[in-house]
Amino acid sequence: MTDSIEEQTQEELFCIGCGAKIQTTDKNQLGYTPSSVLKKGLETGQLYCQRCFKLRHYNEISDIQLSDDDFLALLNQIGDSDALIVNVVDIFDFNGSIIPGLHRFVGDNPVILVGNKVDILPTALNPNKMINWIQKEAKEQGLHPIETMLISAKKGNSVDELLALIDRERKGRDVYVVGVTNVGKSTLINRIIKQTNGMQDVITTSQFPGTTLDRIEIPLDDGHALIDTPGIIHAQQMAHYLHDKDLRLIAPQKQVKPKVYQLNAGQTLFLAGLARFDFIQGDRAGFVGYFDNELYIHRTKLENADDFYGKHLGDLLQPPHPEDLADFPELHRYEFSTKQKSDLVFAGLGWITLPADVVVAGYAPKGVSVMIRKALI
């Protein structure tokens, strides 16, 4: 009986967690579901692929097997549509979470820029300063959003306001929710579903990158839809250099607490083995770090820093772990001089607030952004 059900309906069966087409023949391909559980899924209406089932119940992740061409085709499809675009970014990793060239793909469609994870910002940070900075960075990328707002998809902060904004601006059109991996996009979709019709955790969510594997359409009252798209892979995210168990360090789950370091010129801070900060020139001063509360930070002398890193990477300085060292890239150095109180931002990790009139250097894996901005606090 199960085989006949598969034969009759397989063409129209999709995982309700990630949107992948269900198949029962190849466990190494997307959408695989054992035949033994297919019938039960059809009867209950809760049909998940094996990948989503393991992710939901055991917190296990499988590799993504979608190509860059698939993502490119999706972006082109958005550009050909008459739609409202909701672009979700990570406020702790704006430069790593902005979609390269998005402004070329959206065409004339309006964009709402949504900065997620506001709940982990330090209490002293003025949200309006963060919004202004995000808008400035977006414009430098060629993106001109009609509105910018901060939310917490996890906590639900300002999600009602976002829904009201979407309802006002979509004007009878579909809504595409886009973002790179690991920005909390599917968590936001789940929050929207929960707040609009009471269904909870319909779409698979995780701290792991790349959960949504095909577009998922949530019907709206007027016949249009809210469309959740796959998380687009951005190779310059710190997440791609970390083991799954360490992703929490770049995706803080609790409000970040500032850590103050009184430094003399000639001192170095290692941010585990992932990044490095050198105080090169200036008077003794306090430097304030804003990182995940569990990130290991080690202070040492600048003159010994290179040897220390080479000796202790993967040991005292973890992550990365010993088994990941072969694939971990060298750190790239960026030097800055400040004229005013500034933030040195390590994309995906956090930032260090610097005083005026100092010379510093920041290091991160090649391709991961290290940049300076006017201090937000």
Score class of each variant (00 low, 15 high):
2 T>M: 02
2 T>P: 00
3 D>Y: 12
4 S>H: 10
5 I>S: 04
9 T>R: 13
10 Q>F: 08
13 L>Q: 10
13 L>H: 05
14 F>E: 03
19 G>R: 12
19 G>N: 12
19 G>F: 03
22 I>V: 10
25 T>A: 12
26 D>N: 15
28 N>A: 01
30 L>Q: 04
32 Y>I: 00
37 V>H: 02
49 C>L: 01
51 R>Q: 11
52 C>V: 03
54 K>T: 03
58 Y>K: 09
58 Y>F: 14
58 Y>I: 05
68 D>M: 04
69 D>Q: 09
69 D>R: 00
69 D>V: 08
74 L>H: 09
74 L>A: 08
77 Q>D: 12
81 S>I: 00
84 L>E: 02
87 N>R: 05
87 N>G: 03
88 V>W: 04
89 V>L: 13
89 V>H: 12
90 D>A: 06
91 I>K: 07
93 D>P: 07
94 F>K: 01
99 I>V: 14
101 G>A: 03
102 L>Q: 07
110 P>S: 02
111 V>R: 10
111 V>I: 15
114 V>A: 03
115 G>K: 03
116 N>I: 12
116 N>W: 10
117 K>H: 10
118 V>A: 14
119 D>L: 05
120 I>K: 03
121 L>D: 00
129 K>L: 12
131 I>E: 07
132 N>H: 08
135 Q>S: 14
138 A>C: 08
140 E>S: 08
140 E>D: 10
148 T>M: 02
148 T>V: 08
149 M>H: 01
155 K>I: 11
161 E>V: 04
162 L>C: 09
167 D>P: 04
169 E>K: 15
172 G>H: 04
176 Y>P: 05
176 Y>C: 02
180 V>N: 12
186 S>E: 02
188 L>D: 06
193 I>T: 12
194 K>Y: 09
200 Q>A: 13
201 D>I: 00
201 D>Q: 13
207 Q>R: 11
210 G>W: 10
211 T>Y: 03
216 I>V: 09
216 I>F: 12
224 H>R: 15
225 A>I: 02
225 A>D: 07
227 I>H: 03
232 I>Q: 05
233 I>M: 06
238 M>E: 01
239 A>K: 11
249 L>F: 07
249 L>P: 07
250 I>S: 06
250 I>P: 14
256 V>M: 13
259 K>R: 13
261 Y>G: 08
266 G>R: 09
267 Q>N: 13
267 Q>T: 12
268 T>S: 14
275 A>H: 05
277 F>A: 13
280 I>N: 09
283 D>N: 10
285 A>V: 08
286 G>C: 07
289 G>R: 04
291 F>Y: 08
291 F>M: 10
294 E>I: 02
295 L>P: 09
298 H>E: 11
306 D>T: 11
309 Y>N: 00
309 Y>S: 01
311 K>F: 13
316 L>P: 10
317 L>K: 07
326 A>E: 14
330 E>Y: 11
336 F>S: 05
339 K>C: 06
339 K>F: 13
341 K>D: 11
345 V>W: 07
349 L>F: 05
352 I>K: 02
353 T>Y: 01
353 T>G: 02
358 V>D: 10
359 V>N: 13
362 G>A: 04
366 K>D: 14
368 V>F: 09
375 A>I: 05
377 I>G: 09
